[in-house]
Design a protein around this nucleic acid. Sequence first.
DNA 1: AAAATAGTTCAAATATTTTTGAACTATTTA
DNA 2: TAAATAGTTCAAAAATATTTGAACTATTTT
Lengths: 99, 99
Amino acid sequence: MLNSKQKNQDDSNKQIQVFKALADPIRLEIIKYLKHHSHEIACGEVGKAVNISKTSGSYHFKLLEAAGLIDTRREAREKYVTLNKQTFDKYVTDFYQNI
Amino acid sequence: MLNSKQKNQDDSNKQIQVFKALADPIRLEIIKYLKHHSHEIACGEVGKAVNISKTSGSYHFKLLEAAGLIDTRREAREKYVTLNKQTFDKYVTDFYQNI
DNA sequence: AAAATAGTTCAAATATTTTTGAACTATTTA
DNA sequence: TAAATAGTTCAAAAATATTTGAACTATTTT
């Protein structure tokens, strides 16, 4: 079990991870693209839309997922992504209020 | 004058600058400290509270100011800082809604 | 079965950010 | 006027993040 100091540490790390994930033009474009397409979309489609290589896409999606900003679901060859609104609410929208 | 595409570019740059500024443990500590002290505080006092060197403080305060997250006022030897809530509102709290 | 497609992994190269200490300016105190 | 205090600037070093291409796995299409 984690004590309350450890929980704060953890949350602080998560907070930084979220801001780091948002602090990049490519990832911001990906997020904007997803926000404007409410249905599930494959990584490849997003990658094409924002004009990056497969490798670069793989790197950026991994980072966004690690930060909890997107959820992913693999179906056969393809990986579908959606925004995780809860993470945005907790670590972005409510950030100022909660600190 | 800037056209509307240039304005979006500009704002997108500002958005990234804000997230970059927030994506660091020291700067987050500084911001938390300021949030919990509503009155003006000198850089040195904050620096002592978060346990960093003068040089490091100077670097981080400059970055926060460039991002518009803090305002500063110099009075003789000392520089007083306060949070700029408008910037938090526009680029953090309202981020998700506005993209 | 071969070719095409979607995505991952790895390591090297590059770019960016952060830390550090020394030297500096300006102001205040002794 | 000398010493102390508050903060800045600079350049080098160290740490982190990003890009790239080649090789890979797994699945689907021809």
